[in-house]
Amino acid sequence: MVNQDGAAAPAVRVSKLGYVGFVTPDLDRLVEYYTQVLGFSLVDFSPQGAFVTTGTDHHCVVLTPGEAHARSVVGYEVFEDLADAQRRLSDLGYPVQRRTDIGPGTPDVLVLTEPETGVELHLMTSQDPSGAEGTAPLRPTKLGHVAAFTPDLAPTQAFYQDVLGFKWSDTVGDFFVFLRCNADHHAANFMASRKRTGMHHVAYEMRDPNHLITVLDHLAKHGYRLHWGPGRHGPGHNLFTYHKDPDGNTIELFTQIDQVVDEAKGYWEPRPWHETYPMGPRTWEVDIATVNQWGIVNEQELDH
């Protein structure tokens, strides 16, 4: 199968990031953090795990008890019929299973393994509804993106673009890539590293700067302090803050991320803080303004 330009079409086309999983040594503590501190809605809970959401999807975060492991699983929604997607993935040599026992809210899922990292990926056409009503004052609008380390950037980027249909958004130097599956600047980003593994951070979107400030005040009241931010990234141009959850995972709360409203034009919707007009995907230099346009750098973010 090829595109109109003659290039090979991806096996599947991811439409959005669905959920991310965390294994936690203290399930009750992490459930309390997500529901009482970040305002997520608890949809399903048992000693085997908890499912929390920010909106109409059954869940966007899965919490299971065990030895701490961030980004234990990542779920994506796809456009394709699952039978067709399974065939295409199998034809490319990727072992894939179709399962109905993954958990509540996801009755039909394709399971495969992310190359280079071994993380389990779930592909589905949709989730069951969560039943959550309205917009809570604190609750983020959605799960925005998940960033991870990979030992080799090129094959990871190729897998996401050539197999899952992601598009390239930006690269920092030769070690940090941002990939999108819809209008948002990135849903997945990867940092090449030979000494660090696992998740870099998980990010939840806030409605606007006022919403972000409100939640930061709520975090402070519960004893959670920022370890970086507020600031504005170069790639994606989102306002960002970072803090640690009770397990020590890095959590980004952000707003104002770049949008591609017309893929045919191929540039970000113009914003006053953009460096050029129009502004499209690019390779950024490794400098202070790239990491944070406001000039304050967390050195750990450049340590790969």
Rank of each mutant, 00 (worst) to 15 (best):
K265S: 12
Q127W: 14
T35M: 02
T125V: 13
A187M: 07
M206G: 00
P129R: 02
D170T: 03
Y33E: 01
V73N: 04
L153F: 09
D162K: 00
R98Y: 15
Y19S: 13
P209H: 14
F149A: 05
S90G: 12
V202F: 10
G49F: 04
K167P: 03
L143T: 04
H218G: 10
W228M: 07
F240Y: 14
H145Q: 05
L63V: 09
D247M: 06
D217Y: 12
L153C: 08
G198S: 03
R194Y: 06
E133T: 10
P235W: 04
L143S: 03
N298K: 02
L153V: 11
V37W: 01
H201S: 14
F149G: 00
Q97R: 15
S126H: 13
L82D: 04
L179T: 02
D208A: 11
P140W: 04
V14G: 02
H227V: 11
P155T: 04
P281M: 07
D184W: 07
L143R: 01
G103K: 02
A136I: 05
D108C: 10
V111E: 06
Q36I: 06
P278S: 09
Q161T: 12
I296R: 14
T283G: 07
V146F: 04
N210L: 13
Y76I: 05
H185E: 13
R99C: 11
L112I: 01
Q4N: 09
G39I: 00
N189T: 15
V215Y: 02
G131L: 09
K244Y: 14
T156C: 09
D287E: 13
F178M: 08
T54C: 04
H145M: 05
A68I: 06
Y242P: 00
G165D: 05
V96A: 01
H201T: 04
Y224P: 00
S15G: 12
E275V: 04
D5A: 08
A7C: 08
